[in-house]
Nucleic acid binder design. Structure first.
Lengths: 133, 133
DNA sequence: CAGAATCCGCGTAGATACTG
DNA sequence: CAGTATCTACGCGGATTCTG
């Protein structure tokens, strides 16, 4: 394959069967969701996203935006000015998804403590292997 | 750290700030969601999951189940019989999440065609670099 | 400002073999 | 049946450098 790693996700292979996988493939990736959330308030510029997301690299922002654009979840509008100005905006389809993402976030916040405690408990029970070596 | 790659996800580092990241970290991983969905109908055995999920390796099933158990999303019940019988079941917290996951799935099914077409269109426009080399 | 290109480490996941 | 152990790879993602 001529695939010289363009950064556009391949993983096309087994995306056939399960719709669940498709969503997750679309929404997964370390930054997709945060971008979708950040862009939900309206058109947003590249640099605004970069500074708003905290921890994202320029490269990853670009790549993730490309993939979201490719999937029809964001639009990319270039304003031919000097200096250049590029705005990203959610498509209607992505906006539907955004509502669902808010539910996910809500769930996370409600159960964040529970999960943390579960983890702590599990780790306590399951690492007596560190006795001494 | 003594972390000898037990398979239990580390990535604890930047899970502090954003609740969004936390959820996704919890639910991401190639198989988590499918397992949660598969186990939603009630207690389910290891092998049933293995055959129901299609494409998952025994190793990944084990690791993912461990992590879900660690986060308090599934319970693991061992029946001391011969041959052994182990059943996994969603916790109440995971069941709440399951409802949200159904919304995600719904979104995926409604927009699957749209996304596929968007991809196709994007790929058509953006790979004229394969002209001849 | 908004990227593209390159280099590279690390973790996630697959394949395979062994066990209580 | 329900795992564990080991070895390996490939793709994600970070850091850095260069451009229109």
């Amino acid at each position: 394959m001529s695939q010289r790693n363009t950064g556009v996700t391949p993983q096309v292979v087994n995306a056939h069967a399960c719709p669940v996988r498709e969503v997750l493939d679309r929404v997964s990736g370390k930054w997709s969701v945060q971008i979708l959330v950040a862009a939900a308030h309206g058109p947003i510029r590249f640099t605004e996203l970069e500074r708003g997301i905290e921890g994202i690299s320029r490269r990853m922002l670009t790549l993730t935006l490309r993939n979201l654009e490719r999937d029809g979840l964001v639009t990319r509008t270039v304003h031919p000015t000097v200096p250049p100005k590029v705005e990203y905006e959610l498509t209607p389809v992505a906006r539907e998804l955004h509502e669902t993402l808010l539910r996910l976030t809500g769930w996370a916040e409600r159960n964040r403590v529970y999960i943390a405690e579960s983890r702590a408990a599990y780790d306590t029970e399951h690492e007596p292997e560190l006795v001494d070596v």
